[in-house]
Each structure stands twice: as C-alpha cells, then as structure tokens.
C-alpha cells in the first residue's frame, strides 16, 4: 500500500505547492505591473527630536481611541505611530536614540498572506490595506508583523462627549474586534487623487501629506512617491544613510530610515 501511496502523495503535494507559488507570484506580478505610485516615507533620524508631535497628529487624524490608564498599562494602548526610545552608553554618558515606528508598508508584508479573509492585503499602489469590515479578528497579522505596528480593538472605543465632535469624518471609527494600523493616511491620498482627477492633472510631489509628516516640526518625516525619480523621497532614499528597519527579514519595507551620521562609528560628536 505504502508503495502506491508515496508517489501519489508527493505528487499531489508538489502540485499544491506549485499552485500556491504560481497564485502568489501571479498576484504579485499583476499588482506590480499595475502600480503607478509607490508611496513611501523617509524618516531622518538625525532630525527626529522625539517630540512625538507625529503621535498626537496621528491620533487626531485617524480617530485612534485612547484606551485609558488601566488598559494602557496592560499593553493595549493604541498608537499607529510611536517613538521608540533606546538608550546607549552608561550613566552619565547616556544617549537616547529615537526611532519613530509605524506600519512599514512592506512590499513583502508578512501580515498579508496570513490573513484568512483578505482583510489585510496589498493594494495596487503597494500599500498594506486594512479592510476593517472584512476583519474577523484572528490577530494573525499582528503576530506575523515583525514591527508590532498592528493594534487590536479589545473593546469598543469610547469618546467622552463632546470629544467625539473632533472625530475625523473621512476616517472610519473602528469597532470592537478589528485590527487597525497606520494607513499612510489613505484618506488623504484618496482625497488628493479625486481632486487631481477633477482638475484633470496628475498628482504632484507634496500633494499628499500624512498627518505625521505634516506636523513634524524638524521635518524629519518626508512622504512621497518612490516611483517618481524627482520626488523628495526618491532623492532622500538614495542617500548613503538610507537603511530599512529589520531589513534582514526580507519584508521590503517602504519606510526608509536615514541613520544618524554621528552614531554609527561610536564616536562622540
């Protein structure tokens, strides 16, 4: 029996793997060939002062709920954008390194293939879309994400009145049980696209500004189209300081960090 079974079994599994691979690659290909825009963000760590204006702006723009003291202490706070702090050296020669971390909008995003319902998926423009109404809350994407930038609504969010009047009407208010994360302010991208189309022109560099980039006092955050060689992000992405977070995982992030020049060599500046 076993003699008959083994080739059939391996044949079937080879077939299945081939099918999966072709499905996957064909999808990736169609998406890449259709892409006109490749939205990306550059974070200049030399400029970042860790002021967290971006965090506040992101909360205000994207209707991100505050979960309260108790829940936050448990680790359920939601910040699509956060500024991670790392300390280097021993007292008194301590230096703090700030890294603003938000969804890296990976081209090979680990969150996408694991979602059973396509709630997390790759859009034609290379964004990692998050479709709230399709999300059933497996939280698999959040586990798969190496950057920990996905947040789950453990309870229904609550705004004390009249604070609800500041909610952004262009952005959904997410309910309990769905995942959410930085969208690169997709509502602003969509609005800019519609305006540009109404004016019968192409989007130009600077038309779209996510809330974080708009509010960054030292202009450490720059947003734009990587496929446009003349854009500011393209110019900065060519810098020799350009790196990507956890690049070795092969996620192909579209957030580019410009390393602090004074830091890499360990010299005090």
């Amino acid at each position: 029996m076993q003699r008959h079974d083994a080739p059939l079994d391996s044949g079937l599994s080879t077939l299945a793997i081939l099918l999966l691979v072709t499905c996957h690659s064909s999808m990736v290909q169609t998406m890449e060939s259709k892409a006109q825009k490749k939205w990306a963000m550059v974070v200049d760590l030399d400029r970042c002062t860790g002021c967290e204006a971006c965090v506040v702006a992101c909360h205000a723009e994207n209707n991100i709920p505050t979960v309260g003291e108790e829940q936050a202490a448990m680790g359920r706070a939601m910040h699509w954008m956060r500024v991670e702090r790392y300390y280097q050296g021993d007292f008194p020669n301590v230096r703090v390194k700030f890294i603003p971390v938000f969804c890296q909008q990976c081209d090979a995003a680990p969150c996408e293939p694991v979602c059973p319902t396509y709630a997390s998926y790759h859009t034609a423009e290379g964004l990692n879309g998050q479709v709230y109404n399709r999300c059933i809350g497996t939280r698999y994407c959040a586990n798969a994400c190496p950057y920990n930038v996905r947040f789950f609504n453990f309870y229904n969010p609550v705004w004390e009145k009249p604070l609800h009047l500041q909610l952004n009407p262009d952005v959904s208010v997410r309910e309990v049980g769905v995942m959410e994360k930085c969208t690169f302010c997709v509502q602003r991208i969509k609005a800019a696209e519609i305006t540009a189309k109404a004016d019968k022109r192409e989007l130009k560099d600077g038309d779209v500004q996510p809330a974080c980039a708009q509010s960054c006092p030292p202009k450490a955050l720059v947003f734009g189209d990587l496929n446009d060689p003349t854009s500011e992000v393209s110019r900065l992405a060519g810098s020799n300081r350009a790196t990507r977070l956890l690049e070795e995982l092969g996620t192909k992030p579209k957030v580019i960090y410009l390393q602090r020049e004074s830091w890499g060599d360990g010299k005090e500046s």
Partner: peptide, 28 residues
C-alpha cells in the same frame, strides 16, 4: 478566539455577490 466570532463563516468559500473568497494563502 476571534475578535468577531459571528463572522467566522467567512472562512467558508461560498460564492457571494461580493465576489470575495477566503485567502487560500493563509494557514488558517
């Protein structure tokens, strides 16, 4: 363990007017 267990039936590949299927790449 689902956030929204009442939507678990979306894992069943059934044809609907929305023309959406489960993601067959997902181990779930």
């Amino acid at each position: 363990h689902l956030g929204r267990p009442w939507l678990a039936f979306w894992l069943i590949p059934y044809p609907s007017e929305r023309q959406i299927w489960p993601n067959f790449r997902s181990p779930l």
